[in-house]
């Protein structure tokens, strides 16, 4: 089924720098996706609950404050607790290589640093969601 991909885009934590989140939200919309934009200052609980209610395929978090090692794992834990284990958790911000590796090991998807192109992000979400939907259909 070629249904629209739904993505939740959120600014996690107290950080208000939303340039990246907005540029990405626009790019995802322009690529034909339905973007649920929750705006600023979202707690992990708010993000996970919204992801479940909206039945999104992916959650994209933008986070420039350095709190990524706290917030990503917490969102992941809550998504799993709420039965959203199949939802892709991805995102971007000022995240060093070492932290990216650690978060990926915990189950977070690809993370995009400064300089990533929106095309890379769109392609990644489309491919990864497609792969996961295929798995779901075959299970």
């Amino acid at each position: 089924m070629d249904r629209a991909i739904r993505v939740l885009v959120a600014k996690a934590g107290l950080d208000g720098h939303d340039r990246g989140a907005k540029v990405v939200a626009r790019a995802l919309r322009d690529a034909g996706m339905e973007v649920i934009y929750t705006g600023l200052r979202q707690s992990p609980e708010m993000i996970a609950e919204a992801a479940v209610q909206e039945d999104v395929d992916a959650v994209g978090l933008s986070l420039l404050s350095g709190a990524h090692m706290t917030i990503f794992p917490e969102v992941l834990r809550l998504l799993r607790e709420k039965g959203g284990d199949d939802i892709l958790l991805t995102g971007g911000g000022c995240i060093g290589d070492e932290d990216m590796v650690e978060l990926r090991e915990q189950g977070v998807g690809e993370l995009f640093g400064p300089g990533a192109s929106t095309r890379e992000i769109v392609d990644y979400i489309r491919d990864e969601v497609g792969r996961r939907r295929q798995l779901q259909e075959n299970s």
Binding site: G13, L14, D15, G66, A67
Partner: peptide
């Protein structure tokens, strides 16, 4: 840091993970 900029103390639940970061 961000909690201070947002008028929150370091022990506020919203500050978790952000204290002293920026």
């Amino acid at each position: 840091d961000l909690p201070t900029l947002m008028g929150r103390d370091s022990d506020d639940p919203w500050s978790l993970g952000e204290v002293g970061k920026c």
